[in-house]
Each structure stands twice: as C-alpha cells, then as structure tokens.
C-alpha cells in the first residue's frame, strides 16, 4: 500500500536526520578546547539551501501531476454516484438526491471502470473517505454544504468498501459510515 511506503520513507528521513544531529552533538562533546568549527559556513549554508530548493523542485514536479484533481480527467465515468452527507449518515444514489427528503440505494460499482462520486453535505462539513476491504484509505474528498466535490476513482479490487467520515461533524462522528460493493 501507498501508506506503507510513506511511513517507510518518513522513518528513513527521520532516522537520517537523527543520525546527523547525533553526529554533530558527539563532535561537540569530543572536540578539544578552542577549535574553530566549520570553515566557510556561509558558503556551505548557501549550497545547502540551493540543494534543498532543487530537491523540493524535483519532488514537487513529480508529485503535483499525481494530484487527485487531474485523475481520470479525460475519461468519461462509467457510473456517477450522488452522495449526500448528513449528521451522521451517508446517502449514496445513482439518481440525484432530494435535499429535503434524502434517501439512498444499495450501491454496486463496476471493477476497472472510472466512477465519479458527486459529494455534498446537507448540514455541516463531513469527510468522504473510501476504505478498501483491508480498511486502508484508497481515496477521499470532503462533503461541504453548498458545494459538490467530484471525486473520480477506478476500483481495481473487488469486495466491500467502507466509507467513513473524516471531518469532525459532531458527537456521532465516529459512527458515521456506510458501505458499497465493487464487483
């Protein structure tokens, strides 16, 4: 899963940073009296900054095109699902949802086809996070009153997917969930 790579990447970075700091600390403890320390510090700091800018530049240019706003933008979705969130439940339907008397259907989604979720809220801000059958988030968007967020996704594994609210919406927040099937 993507999350495991992220955690591993973070741990490697954190350990590297810690090693550098410990190394610097030990060099101070072991140093003799009246040593000059780093020479040409200003020049080195300049290069350090420049390298960081380049690293960030590369990181941004690689990751930005992978942003969810551009996902499957050119494709026509095989199915459109309307989603209305309301304290503390979700309504999912293939038809438009009437805000005055919202109701939902049991949803079955096709495998390997682009699906578009049109997500809104009828009261406060909610989250709309899709969890795979192993209970890991595969994608998400927010449900905001007065707005419709369009989330596109292609499911590649069959099974029961959970939807959990990820924006605090009141005391019932942790029980706000639903499911749908992908097959």
């Amino acid at each position: 899963m993507k999350q495991d790579s992220i955690l591993l990447f973070f741990c490697l970075l954190a350990i590297t940073a810690t090693i550098v700091f410990v190394w610097v600390f030990r060099s101070s403890i072991k140093a003799e009296e009246r040593t000059p320390g780093i020479k040409n510090a200003l020049q080195k700091r300049f290069w350090f900054l420049l390298i960081l800018v380049v690293v960030f530049g590369i990181f941004a240019s690689v990751t930005l095109p992978k942003s969810p706003y551009f996902a499957f933008a050119e494709e026509v979705p095989a199915k459109v699902i309307h989603v209305a969130a309301l304290q503390f439940s979700f309504f999912l339907s293939e038809k438009s949802i009437d805000p005055k008397s919202p109701s939902g259907d049991n949803i079955e989604l096709p495998l390997n086809k682009v699906v578009e979720f049109r997500v809104t809220s009828l009261d406060v801000n909610h989250g709309f996070a899709i969890y795979n059958p192993q209970m890991r988030i595969v994608t998400q968007t927010q449900a905001m009153p007065g707005y419709i967020n369009r989330l596109r996704y292609k499911f590649t594994k069959p099974g029961i997917y959970h939807v959990l609210c990820l924006e605090y919406c009141g005391v019932g927040h942790p029980v706000m969930q639903t499911t749908f099937i992908v097959k």
Partner: peptide, 12 residues
C-alpha cells in the same frame, strides 16, 4: 544549519 555550524566540532 546555523545550529549545526555553531556546534559541529566545537566544544560548547
């Protein structure tokens, strides 16, 4: 970097 410069190889 300023902190590293201040410390590295220096008995503080």
């Amino acid at each position: 970097f300023s902190i590293i410069v201040a410390i590295y190889g220096v008995r503080i």
